[in-house]
């Protein structure tokens, strides 16, 4: 293993901003795996750090196949994490809205450009990603429908779901999108949580990645086959929305099987304690995403459901 500084800039009063990578194996640029891009992505940095542990063992045991280089970057944004800011501490811009970056541009454009220059030529790219709404997901692999996405390949992670996302204008500046445009097979890996550590789903994601890399003949690794992934588009998911705002009392969790007519959550009046609204499942299915903030706004998609059973 070689520990490398991928990108570095100085600051007026802080220690240098450093993006550190861990390189395993030698040869063609096979796999690049990245952790947090935002300051609140604690689960993402944790999962990536555990993957570094796994690769240290794999390398020691000679299980990384010859001719393959694997680069793991657990944190692309230590500054934001250290100051508990979600975005760049000074100008509040989002590095994941700056790709492919611009080396003569503003700070986060430069950071994106500097990092992308190093990671753009890898054959496979994986990012531990997070969602902008507070909530928990079923672990899954997500891809944008750029026209370059390889759905069959995504199934090889053996995670329960592969989710396809229709591109919106603001997606075109994300890492995942640009990786695909630069012909990297790019996958966003979602574990259950973001701001808190969920060890179980971190393990599941790591197993998924190792399973995938074994199938691509990059590492030697034996594990169970995993799930036969179901492919869903984000538009196929059924959203359950709040009509009113208030205290959100969830009765179910992400991953739980639910029946049509079941109460998924209640909205409680925050002053008088009465139940203002029962949120009812319109179908039999599985909770794919569940809001986990104790308050909710109105019109909020607090659950996303995949209809049918596992």
């Amino acid at each position: 293993m070689e520990k490398k500084i991928i990108y570095e800039i100085s600051s007026l009063y802080r220690d240098n901003f450093r993006v550190t990578g861990f390189e395993f194996g030698e040869g063609e640029k096979s796999v690049c795996i990245v952790g947090n891009l935002r300051g609140n992505e604690v689960q993402q940095i944790y999962t990536c750090s555990q993957l570094v542990q796994k690769f240290k063992v794999l390398e020691k045991e000679g299980k990384i196949r010859k001719g393959h280089k694997v680069l793991i970057i657990p944190s692309m944004n230590p500054y934001s994490m250290n100051s508990k800011e979600r975005f760049w501490p000074t100008d509040k811009t989002d590095i994941n809205r700056m790709f492919p970056g611009y080396d003569l541009g503003e700070t986060t454009q430069r950071i994106a450009a500097g990092i992308f220059e190093v990671i753009k030529d890898y054959k496979y790219g994986m990012q531990f990603a997070s969602f902008y709404m507070p909530g928990k997901f079923m672990p899954h692999v997500r891809m944008m429908q750029t026209g370059f996405e390889n759905v069959e390949m995504a199934k090889e992670f053996g995670m329960p779901y592969v989710v396809l996302r229709k591109i919106r204008p603001y997606d075109t500046t994300t890492l995942n999108y640009n990786w695909q445009i630069w012909e990297t097979n790019a996958f966003s890996i979602y574990t259950t949580s973001t701001t808190e550590i969920d060890k179980e789903s971190a393990k599941e994601a790591i197993r998924g990645i190792l399973r995938f890399l074994a199938k691509q003949q990059i590492i030697e690794y034996t594990t169970h086959e995993g799930y036969k992934s179901s492919v869903v588009t984000d538009s196929e998911m059924i959203s359950v929305r709040t009509k009113s705002a208030g205290i959100f009392d969830s009765k179910v969790k992400a991953g739980e099987e639910i029946a049509k007519g079941q109460i998924l959550a209640q909205i409680i009046d925050p002053l008088e304690g009465e139940v203002k609204e029962n949120l009812i499942s319109p179908v039999d299915g599985i909770v794919f995403f569940g809001h986990n903030d104790p308050l909710t706004y109105a019109n909020t998609a607090v659950f996303k459901i995949i209809s049918g059973g596992i």
Partner: peptide
Amino acid sequence: PIVDHGSL
């Protein structure tokens, strides 16, 4: 007044 590398 405060600028980082690249600030406009």
